[in-house]
Design a protein around this nucleic acid. Structure first.
Lengths: 226, 226
DNA sequence: AATCTATTCAATTAAATAATTGAATAGATT
DNA sequence: AATCTATTCAATTATTTAATTGAATAGATT
């Protein structure tokens, strides 16, 4: 039987709202932000988001049902990843919407960074690209090394933030330091800049993360980990 | 007192989920899709979405609280519009996510169009642009005239779908007809193509709507309605 | 086959969301 | 000031959602 206009529109918007509902939860948004960095196991996701494994798993089932994530298996571990680039694109749109327009988010980010270090500064990708061309900065990737290996900004040194204390001697004083991590809401770079600043270095963070840098077409490298 | 990392992330993702929640409802998604076409009053929005005025207003309050819409006033009427282009961009990302990846939406669209007319075809914006350059088609804007006046595809004739019956003599037989309306989930173009096909015309619809065409940088016109 | 580990499932409880209905309100109009 | 129109608000009811807890399961490993 022929579907009428109202039935059609109702069905389409109900389906789309299912996708939007999958994203309408803070824990699931954090999971999507994390998976933008690559595949992670349930245990890792639970760890990074500070949820119970059961709760993380339930949220992952919700995302899977909405077809936003997909799984692969390695031994006992099940790895989750974003199902497609359009999931990432929608996450980025939503984040931009929140950043540009929800002043509360900007305020939270600003307050957090100010609490980390007075005069905390961030530069954007275009500025970094120019500085790298002029060889003016030392670039630090302060994510876990596994993520560095999956892909990193061209010429970045890998110094995970929790190893930063014991790695200071590797870092030249002469040039300005730029630290980057997973993205605007990841705080590894904030922590790194705070520590480096306390040790007398001139350090700032990159606003974007590796995925945004890559998406903008700037040069990236990969480490073959074999 | 200094905000810790977990507090920071929780606050940021909760704020962002507020935005996502505003979109996580089929009625509000339809409202956003409608407002992508320009400002509408509460009464118009209630009419087009087939909701009560009270319900439409409640959803609009929800969208307003999330800062996704803004208002202006004209006499007794309050007009709602999308608060920024990034609201529209997020809507488009979500819709693309749904179209590309949620096969149920594609099926609903296909089933609806098949119910309208066997052999129902749609072309995309790039195809239309080429055909217009070669002067191969007659382009019909089948939206309400008010929306045509706000902006339309270059060289489109305005023939609102509910006037199509009495406007057939205006339409040449010799060329292929392309009908367009508000976007992929608007059915004015489907209805127009069904009617034209029954009357012996060779007609197809444009997949995209006017906003997508404009966003892709293709030529547009405006009618000064004074 | 037995055991282990990571993960999922199910039930419960509490909180959040949404449509309806009628009342109230905000401006505009007279 | 009185009246009107469009819109918003508030209470109610039903539905949906989410965290917790403990049980169950799916594969891997031995």
């Amino acid at each position: 039987m022929k579907m009428n206009k109202r039935e059609f529109k109702d069905k389409v918007y109900i389906e789309l709202s299912t996708v939007a509902k999958a994203m309408a939860n803070p824990v699931r948004l954090e999971i999507i932000d994390l998976l933008a960095q690559g595949p992670f196991s349930v245990e890792q996701i639970a760890n990074y988001t500070e949820q119970s494994i059961a709760n993380a798993s339930q949220h992952l089932q919700h995302l899977k049902k909405a077809k936003l994530v997909q799984i692969s298996r390695n031994g006992n571990f099940i790895y989750y990843s974003l199902a497609s680039e359009s999931v990432y694109n929608t996450w980025v749109s939503l984040r931009e919407l929140g950043k540009v327009f929800n002043t509360e988010i900007a305020k939270v980010v600003h307050d957090f960074r100010k609490g980390q270090s007075k005069g905390m500064q961030a530069i954007d990708a275009a500025t970094l690209a120019t500085m790298l061309e002029k060889d003016e900065v030392v670039l630090l990737d302060v994510r876990p090394e596994e993520e560095y290996n999956r892909g990193h900004i061209h010429r970045a040194l890998s110094i995970p933030v929790d190893h930063l204390g014991q790695s200071l001697k590797k870092i030249p004083h002469k040039k300005m330091l730029v630290a980057y991590c997973r993205g605007p809401f990841c705080v590894y770079a904030d922590e790194a800049v705070a520590m480096l600043t306390r040790k007398g270095y001139h350090a700032v963070r990159l606003e974007e993360g590796f995925p945004e840098w890559a998406l903008k077409g700037y040069p990236v490298d990969y480490t073959t980990s074999k």
